[in-house]
Write a protein that binds this DNA or RNA. Structure first.
Lengths: 150, 150
DNA sequence: CCAATTTAGTTGCAATTGTGACGATCTATT
DNA sequence: AATAGATCGTCACAATTGCAACTAAATTGG
């Protein structure tokens, strides 16, 4: 005679959405990071800073942090590293002297444009590997997630 | 008269799939981590170790690392922490004395079951917030991603 | 106008993580 | 059985990160 089993169902980690999401994101990030690390010796905070500055032009460190979800000390160190490579310049804001307006140098912009190509190629290959259905699903899923936390 | 503009299109970070994926995963992970951190003082490696052991029963540190994508030193430290809480026991394998077979204690299993409930609740709320379409899309997208890197 | 509060960015310190080397043990080859 | 190579887990050390305190400058409110 069968009876009800009253153990809690254990958690299947491979089916747990936060875990799956995290693992997938880490795998993708890691593959992309190896490109800019191997080709340019950039760290992830440095890449994000470069990408944000390249996208928006002149910008402050705080704005970069807000926009790319990085702590201000991370941004501070990334800015220092990029400055030492001569990829960006700091300009004191004349009307608010606490602020530094950051701008890419020509060398910084050139590296940025190179990396934009690397990024676009990487994404294109990723989406192609996912196939049209997988790519569309992923984008829709991400969109739904983004609507939650902002 | 219009003419072709020949600048590269800049990268829009908010539309770049690896970035979106990473940001979404971090937001979700962080929200979930705050639950087990606040309620049990667990770190992420500790939670993952507990969850893997709870799911599979007796297991070695190396197997935990392989299964949950953690470096072996991370696992080693998480195991030490869980051992000190008396949530797991190490048993030397008799046939291979390099190996430690790890098992949850009753206290460890109780904590695990509590956290399984927290995890299930968290996931249910997440999926509910995403709505049926968003949740399905996310799952399909993750499935497509998992088929790539394994 | 001045004190209190807020903001931008940096720095020192502590915690977390990754790397490489290590001792111990097992396996494979001769 | 003896040597060489692989594997398990740990440790010491270096690099990365986060937090809190700090300087300098702007803003707010009496």
């Amino acid at each position: 005679m069968k009876r009800k089993i009253d153990i809690d169902p254990p958690l299947i980690l491979e089916a747990f959405t936060p875990y799956r999401l995290n693992k997938a994101a880490e795998a993708v990030s890691h593959r992309f990071a190896s490109l800019y690390r191997d080709q340019y010796g950039l760290t992830r905070p440095e890449w994000r800073t470069l990408a944000t500055l390249g996208q928006f032009g002149t910008m402050t460190a705080t704005a970069i942090g807000t926009h790319s979800s990085m702590h201000k000390t991370k941004v501070s160190r990334a800015v220092l590293a990029l400055e030492q490579r001569r990829w960006l310049l700091r300009k004191r804001d004349e009307t608010d002297r606490r602020v530094e307006n950051l701008v890419l140098t020509p060398a910084g912009r050139k590296a940025y444009l190179d990396l934009v190509k690397v990024a676009h190629d990487f994404e294109a290959e990723l989406l192609q590997q996912l196939g049209p259905r997988g790519a569309a699903a992923l984008k829709n899923g991400l969109e739904a997630l983004e609507k939650l936390a902002g």
